[in-house]
Design a protein around this nucleic acid. Structure first.
Lengths: 214, 214, 214, 214
DNA sequence: CATGAATGAGAATTCATTCAT
DNA sequence: AATGAATGAATTCTCATTCAT
């Protein structure tokens, strides 16, 4: 029997893992600073400084600042899609599933991450800047939408939701609920605690789309 | 006969009026371009060019690019407050008044203008950049809020709205409805016509906050 | 009669003249440094420093480093074409005219300038770098060539030059004679005085292309 | 039996041979890419990639990019000197020998290689960059010159060449004939075939320097 | 030995702001 | 007042070189 300690395959994997870990560290730092200061107010040097590496090293992992941004968005989207997929598989009612997604997305540890992609789509210059790079993110977005559509349409079919309201509109409003940014000032003002906020929003929305009682 | 070297008040006023007209022209141009391209993608030169004046002239009216931006936001906010005030004075029901504000704000000619201030508060970039300059806009925002609060609380008192939902939360959600940006992709996709969009959103929201029937 | 000192048109012309003068100054400095150090070894900052202006000012006159280079080449080419045109108009023999062009081009004050465009076509990376920007220089080069061709062909027709040698080859060799760069080391070594060099080169070339005596 | 830890000479030699072979491979790749793209457009990484080794390995053989370049030039010069030496030894006439050198240097397989050193001396860029590193190449160049000088002076002594033309000038012009770069556009234009080019150039040059018939 | 990740100096370019005319 | 030329700080990105593994 050959000696089992000889690292043949794992060696490749180690380097690769280190590489990915480094990339993850950069994404993490980028996320933190970008969320604080925004795209234009954050230089590659700032990000590198945050990670504790040199400017050039960032470029070893991401070919440009834009690509770093896209990678960030992509990661977040995938994260989001995963949440939806997990929840969508459950057998609870449409409303329960949509609420579950909200709950998990509002989880503070998730919330910050969500925002990054709202940054990108939120301002005119970001939209135009990244318009051409959306080939990769668009399919993910489409996928998320179709998952949500399925849930909502089940809810309509089973009499939970009002059939007179367009599914598209529901999706858009629902996605807006997911944007912590929209509630940012509320929690900054500290006049409404974050924990009370969500249930009320949920209540408004679901009451709003629920089938009207005859 | 008045001494000819002492400029009478109307003369000053004329100059002043021209000055203000010029400032207005600059704001107008700035708004157009900023909405299209975003803050960082718009240079002072671009704005001056649009107005047909020289770069330096812009600085005769606004001490910096940031101040120009703030002025833009302020103008929009005042505009918005005026709409609220006009509507608030009417004697119709709370819901009717809130709907009226939405209608007027969604009016295409208004919608674009609304967005400018959403640009500013919408991205981390802008928020951090303008954080210190909010002394002037904050009171206006507070005023708008208190006007809306009054309407909503009337609605609650008169049994239109659900008293269990915090007024603050209602205001936030209501303000979100006002953000055409949130619906931008919808109308860009051309899958939902702008005209159908508003009624449905209104329906969801007001049904959502309405007092539940026993 | 109106006062003649009122500068209406000249005012425009003054600014324009100052602008051109500034551009000329930059070109002059660029030429000096570029010839000494080459394209890659010369930064825009170096050039600006030589002129005594700031980096950004260079960009007020030339949109990019490449364009500055092209402008330099163009100026030199036009200069060269002008020399050819002036000489071509004379009624002397073909050889005399070609010699005259050489004389004027070897004039030390011209010689340095000539080189700049040889720099550009001389090295692989310059050629590929500027390949796409040649739309403007190519016609000038073609024009110069056709002027030379005409002279050479007259020389052949009148029995001065050997008709068995292709005009194209003659032109190429002639243009090589014009490249002070080719003789650079000679004069650097200081073993051959510049003044003796030209006559000998002329002698070799024209003897070389002259019609062979039967 | 020899002690196994002491490497005999052949063993060192093998390693040394492998080392040299590796160096040769690098030079070969460097030459190919450098000729295509030029010095600044070629990175060490490109060269390493072409050889199929890692960037760092290049530095095991050449202390810097400049030194790699110098080594390339040196190799080419030695090659050239070898051609001259071989030809110089023959008993044919001076013209025949000089023509033979031209023929061998114009041989397509040689032509490309020749150019590398013309790149280096041809642009100001390179000249200034390598000026201080010429201690090693200068002697080789001097040697090549003296070999050529000997041939030319024999030609003069035997009445083949015009004694009134300085040998130095002849050498310079002759070396210029060797620069395929000078004829590059000709063959690129495809208006003159490469095969016709050389004989005509030879004809001009040798007729040009030949002793004039009384 | 070979590798390739990490470094950081350096270069082109942009643009808000100033100021002489 | 208006102009627009000039400035220079700041930013993105490249790549020769080093060095731990």
């Amino acid at each position: 029997m050959p000696s089992p300690e000889k690292p043949t395959k794992p060696a490749v994997s180690l380097k690769e893992r280190q590489r990915e870990e480094r990339a993850r560290l950069i994404l993490e730092a980028a996320q933190t600073i970008l969320l604080e200061r925004g795209y234009h107010e954050t230089s590659i040097d700032d990000i590198a400084g945050q990670v504790g590496i040199a400017k050039g090293t960032v470029y070893l992992h991401f070919p440009s600042k834009e690509d770093l941004m896209i990678a960030l968005v992509e990661r977040q989207l995938q994260n989001f899609v995963q949440v939806i997929e997990e929840v969508a598989a459950s057998t609870s009612s449409a409303r329960e599933r949509l609420e579950a997604i909200l709950q998990r997305t509002y989880d503070p540890s998730e919330a910050r991450r969500m925002q990054i992609f709202l940054e990108v789509f939120g301002s005119a210059d970001m939209r135009s800047r990244f318009a051409e790079k959306h080939e990769r993110t668009q399919p993910i977005i489409d996928h998320a939408r179709s998952l949500l559509r399925a849930i909502i349409e089940q809810g309509k079919a089973q009499g939970e939701f009002d059939q007179h309201i367009s599914t598209k509109v529901m999706i858009v409003m629902y996605l807006n609920l997911l944007s912590p940014r929209n509630y940012h000032h509320l929690t900054t003002d500290q006049t409404v605690a974050f924990e009370e906020l969500l249930p009320q929003i949920i209540q408004i929305f679901f009451h709003g789309i629920s089938r009207k009682q005859a």
